[in-house]
């Protein structure tokens, strides 16, 4: 069965690396990067992009609102 495919874009400049998004992701897509951003925070990124279902949990919980979420209908992408 084809699942909806999602993707997120993290504003890595704004991200403070709190990691709250990693706890609410049902498919464990998000991890904190080994690199740091300009403020010295380990920003969030899609470590496992294929698993993203575009649920937007990460976007709505992000305290700094730095995650944008996209979702394509099942079967819309190859």
């Amino acid at each position: 069965m084809a699942k909806a495919k999602g993707a997120i874009v993290v504003d890595t400049v704004r991200c403070k690396g709190c990691g709250v998004c990693t706890t609410v992701c049902p498919t464990k897509v998000i991890e904190l990067a080994a690199e740091v951003n300009g403020k010295g925070y380990h920003y969030a990124y899609m470590a496992n992009p294929d698993a993203c279902i575009g649920c937007s949990n990460c976007g709505i919980i992000c305290p700094d609102t730095c995650i944008t979420v996209y979702r394509a209908k099942a079967g819309a992408t190859a």
Binding site: K5, G6, A7, V9, G54, S56, G59, I60, I67, T68, V69, Y70, R71, A72, T77, A78
Partner: peptide, 11 residues
């Protein structure tokens, strides 16, 4: 291919 304006669900 997913990151397109028509697929935006949260911003």
């Amino acid at each position: 291919t997913i990151i397109k304006p028509e697929n935006l669900i949260y911003k």
